[in-house]
Nucleic acid binder design. Structure first.
Lengths: 240, 240
DNA sequence: CGTTGGTTTGATTAATGTCAACGCACGTGG
DNA sequence: CCACGTGCGTTGACATTAATCAAACCAACG
């Protein structure tokens, strides 16, 4: 099933007709290479990009060369609905691995928004993105490095699970330790030390870009993770 | 003019009819006292709250007693559109000073969303909230304490200016130093020291809950502030 | 087999948090 | 109208954490 359909269906059950409308809305689909940017800060994209396969990430470069990663995007996620208000993107979006992307024209997006149920689901998905940013704020500013990493892993696990990409508490995590650090406000060395501790305490294995949660319960407990803010109730219950 | 009308009009010019529709959408308005909560984490509000006068703030309490402030709300801002997806709020909203609040029933909100132009403006205002959260992430994790405070002040200044509440680069800032710290991830002592440095370097005055930017240019320069993410172009150009 | 990007390790430095006390200003009640 | 109490702001000494620096190691890939 089209990942966008699957995702929106979680928020507002869609009719067969609406599903078809969504799945056939792409002007075309394209392939993107790991490491390349889908959209660059300062430009105004001509299409809305929907991630169909692979991971992407929102980020912002700072004057001093620092990078802040502000979101991870998984299959079904919209990259740049921002197109509607922006003269120029206020951040960039890059690919963490080879990916497939669906392109929506601005008009196609407007048409989708005109459909009450789809429009509402799109609105809700934006609210979830918003709630996620807020949770990241609390996570990065109020928890110590150990808890921070654990919390991020819990979130990614739940989100990957919701789209059916988790097997036996194990999933692909196409991130370097430096990228993890740029996400939660740690330097790569600190990230490394946290990971080792997580391994030593038998909570995870991580290697070859694959993460396994050996003890989800304990990870949830130590990080104070509450999936509440992801509002994925339905999809979670479907898959677990 | 109704602050919500003023705000949405910035995103998508509204007809006289649409303005009336908006301004008369409130079921009623209520007063709220400084220090009280409008909405509490875990509950599901019966109405959507629109801030008409005063400041509010989104926050989350953590198990260890810490508090993270995730947004400041000013006149015209919607507090809890989240009502649509939430079984329960994932954060609380409190008042920083005595305030006036407009109440929208869920149905009234749905009716507003059905109006294409208003619905779109509401959607866009959500996107701006989202962009603001992301900017806070970058600000709090990638800048040093001095730059962080300066950046926050620049944002509040621009937003207050956009709704006409700035006079001679001076505006009401109903925050304690502890609250500032809970916003940008600093302890109150560090906030205090940053403020003193900002004063010593002739960039601000702050007292009696009123902030004056003595040297906006320099504040912008040192913090790397770029109002881009607020997408307020029209309203700014109107007032400056 | 060499190169490259990523990970791991230890030593050191610098920044921020913590603790504790004091002071100031405002509002309250005697 | 004055005295007291409380909340917030300010200050200094100190502890702790995480950043930085530098080097070695490892695994994948050409």
């Amino acid at each position: 099933m089209d990942p966008l359909v699957a995702k929106l269906n979680c928020f507002a059950p869609l009719s067969a007709e609406e599903r078809t409308l969504l799945a056939s809305a792409y002007e075309r689909t394209i392939a993107g290479a790991a490491g390349s940017d889908i959209v660059t800060e300062g430009e105004r994209p001509q299409h809305i990009h929907v991630l169909l396969e692979g991971w992407a990430y929102r980020y912002k470069m700072l004057p001093d060369g620092g990078r802040q990663i502000m979101a991870y995007l998984m299959p079904g996620d919209l990259c740049d609905v921002h197109i509607f208000i922006l003269k120029a993107m206020d951040h960039s979006i890059g690919l963490l691995c080879d990916a497939r992307i669906g392109l929506l024209t601005e008009q196609a997006m407007l048409d989708l928004l005109d459909n009450p149920r789809i429009g509402r689901a799109l609105y809700l998905s934006t609210l979830v993105d918003d709630a996620t940013s807020r949770e990241w704020l609390a996570n990065s500013l109020r928890r110590d490095p150990f808890e921070r990493v654990a919390h991020l892993f819990c979130e990614l696990w739940v989100r990957m699970n919701a789209i059916g990409l988790v097997e036996a508490d194990s999933f692909d995590l196409p991130l370097t330790q430096a990228e993890l650090g740029d996400t939660i406000g740690l330097n790569p060395v600190s990230v490394n030390r946290v990971l080792q501790r997580l391994r030593a305490e038998q909570m995870i294995t991580l290697g070859r870009k694959r993460l396994t949660l050996l003890d989800p319960k304990r990870l949830i407990a130590i990080s104070g993770f509450d999936p509440n803010y992801l509002h994925l109730d339905k999809s979670i219950s479907t898959h677990r």
